[in-house]
Amino acid sequence: MNRAAKRAVISFAALAAAGAGAFWAFTSPSLSRVEIATVAGAPDLANGELLFNAGGCASCHAAPGGDDRTNLAGGLALATGFGTFHAPNISPHREDGIGAWSVGDFVLAMRAGVSPDGRHYYPAFPYTSYQRMREDDLRDMFGYIMSLEPVAGRAPDHDLAFPYNIRRGVGLWKLVYLDGARFEPDPSRSESWNRGAYLVEAAAHCAECHSTRDFAGAIVPETRFAGGPEPDGQGFSPNITPHPDGVAGWSEAEMADLLATGFTPDFDSVGGSMAAVIRNTALLPQADIEAMAEYILSLPPRPTPPRD
């Protein structure tokens, strides 16, 4: 067991000593219940599809091995230091997927990481980013997912090591790491910069991979977008800040080209899980791709954190 894992175990032991009652009170998924305004109006399915692509839903929830991005049977296994997560079925199947959900259930899942039956989701599901999305966008995204084919079948349960297998413990994690804040546009910046910021920070959740995490699996703020090891330990998501360690010197056109084609300015084609990200971003309107490029190149330059 490495030092980080030991620290996590010690933290958990200390909390247990503080009292199981307190643990129970502080980990209640109802604490994560956020104010959900009524999401009125019919969903705009085209906007929902755009956000589905920007959000990279298919990268984890499309059935592995197939080419069909809209077969949302789940099943992708994500091996991490905490154990193996299995992406669930989010197709509109009533029993096995999310077909019986209301739009409010969907908003609660995306914002608070809580299931309709009141359980915490593990933050492998990147609600720490998705929480920043607008409600009308979430409604449209849900509408789009509900317009797809229902697929039967359930992914296996997550296979996690103690203490991470105590789902209730996610409640403590959320108290510290889930701020519940929405995306706030910066009026001093251009419309396209704000659009890019929204897509990068909220929907596309780029920082979830391109940052280094601490022992608790939370992003270390000074490494945000500056790169980090892949969760499965294979490879390293690169520094995407305009620092000499990262993408300093790239033009916005080159960054937009990467998001549209997967080619870097050296005509290297990005690999690993980024290839799947490109399959998502390549489908976005050119204006959105350019907005993301504009925002990424405006990030604070940060050095790449040291690797173990």
Binding site: G235, F236, S269, V270
Partner: peptide, 14 residues
Amino acid sequence: GCSSCHGEYRVRRN
């Protein structure tokens, strides 16, 4: 083909 093959047989790197 670059991207589809790199997605399966290559890892991300800085």
